[in-house]
Amino acid sequence: MIGLELKKEKRTGVTLVLFITGILGALYVLLNYSIRGDSLLAMPMKPMDILLTQLYGMIMVLNVFALIVATSLVYSMEYSGAAIKKMYILPISMCKVYMSKFLIIISMFLVSVVIQNTALLWIGKTELSKGEFEIVTLIAYTVYTFLTSLPVLSFMLMIALIFENMWVVLGVGVAGFLSGLALATSKTELLLIHPFIVMFKPATAMTSNVNVNTIIIALIETIAFLILGLVISQNKRID
């Protein structure tokens, strides 16, 4: 099923967008550190906190837009030539189609995150003093930022399924990003229901400590949006 989805996604740029985001993120990390490395390390924070939190903000912005674009593309190809109508009259489970799209994007996003964090690993190994670099902290932070990004992925895929017009999907994504940005520093826990705010959490923290509560909320939201998307995909009527 995933193979079939990959065939359908040929020439759409879905996987390419996420891969390029990984490369761009890594280049940004390397370039930023090469220019501002000394001033960053002069900050009154632990070197690992500086390395991870001070560079994550821009990476996260790249990742948000990559997820918005990738999820938009993955369903716009279904709607642009009404191909989805054909899918609904073929002996295929639309839940499996949705799940395959989800798995492809999540896998490519993981590749992107690994590429970005490989750049951080390289800086940590080569630029930080001996004993300052902690591989476990880097891995934990990578997993943390990956997991907190998943609600946006899951939410945007559901939006892309619901709205046939790609510009509406992009609009929802941009609105989510801007509203998330405006509310990211709020202390109100209830706002974590907003998937973009969950993704912004690691970027607004001053330490690289993993917040378990945020991870739990991220997982609940990811699963909730995924289930909602699966139900909608099964019951959507194409007229």
Partner: peptide, 21 residues
Amino acid sequence: SPSYYPNLTGRENLDIIRSIL
């Protein structure tokens, strides 16, 4: 009206249906 993936060739479009069937 015909339903198709505009990003694919005619042969690739039919190959998608072939795989499903």
